[in-house]
Design a protein around this nucleic acid. Sequence first.
DNA 1: CAAAGAATATATTGACTCGATATATATTAT
DNA 2: ATAATATATATCGAGTCAATATATTCTTTG
Lengths: 175, 175
Amino acid sequence: MNSQDVILGLLMHHSLSGYDIKHKMETFLSYFNNASFGTIYPMLSKMEKEGLITKESVMQEGKPNKNLYSITEAGQYQFKQYMYSPIENDEFKSDAMTRLFFGEFVEAHIMVDVLEEFLNRTKVNLERLRQLYVDCQPEMSPTQEICIQIGIHNSESKIHTLTQGITRLKNVEQK
Amino acid sequence: MNSQDVILGLLMHHSLSGYDIKHKMETFLSYFNNASFGTIYPMLSKMEKEGLITKESVMQEGKPNKNLYSITEAGQYQFKQYMYSPIENDEFKSDAMTRLFFGEFVEAHIMVDVLEEFLNRTKVNLERLRQLYVDCQPEMSPTQEICIQIGIHNSESKIHTLTQGITRLKNVEQK
DNA sequence: CAAAGAATATATTGACTCGATATATATTAT
DNA sequence: ATAATATATATCGAGTCAATATATTCTTTG
């Protein structure tokens, strides 16, 4: 899976600009997939050259012009090839957890700060996902619902573990 | 956080070779951080040039020679700089969840396969983490314990959501 | 005993990706 | 007015991965 597969998936419903794609990814996919403009724009150029998508320049009122990209039949075929291919391993990279792993080398109060910051960020993320679920549930596919439930339950379990951990670490600190 | 910070953290306890570092990362950190040889070896060369680590060639019996790297005072200082710096955002990239998100474009039985494969991999991962916890708990720091608990609870919550989801999707399929 | 496979060990390359930066227009708020 | 925000595209350096290459030693298996 690379950004090409995700872009094709997003174009299956509607034609989109590079900017639209970034926005959609941030809104709906960011808790398990994301791409920067530095990935999206060069990839769109490459995909157009390969005939997976077509570009159309669209004039807009009150906004700069945009390049609207549409998926071709070759693109649809390529997307299905991806969906039938073997599943790749998940990769989770967490700076907060890396710090927890090396926590013994700094003062305990620093690690309490890391835990509390990690907890807050997880809470913010959970609220966003819950709101997204409320807003989009009617038009979500069954597998999309599983997807967001995994995100929500994951956040909830992290909040639980972190809250417990903070209490325990503060007790250790006081003794 | 980049691979330099993780390598320095691993060298805080013992001197290690590039190969040792890869092995340690896979055993203890792989559920939230990882690096390939293509990252580790060039990074070690760079860090040696910068005086963060020193290299020593060690003869071994029954094994090829190895380059043993040790952290310098400058390296220890650099590592603490990292530990006191602002926390970066987590990034989670999941191919399985990306497929779930786009599940509407392929047959339901394909998505059942994706869910079952995802479930199995999560179960394998959970077992590995539980075993690691049992094996290492006595020598783990308090924050390392929180770290692995997050990993274990995360897997457990995913297993729960996936199991529910598979049942629901199979019911939808039969109707 | 020979051959194959696994483990140890280091290194390189191409492709992918991110974050920062640059540029430009239009709308909204102060 | 002018600052900030939203829309929109593009590029570059740095970091990273997966695959590949090379070489030695130990273990297993036929």
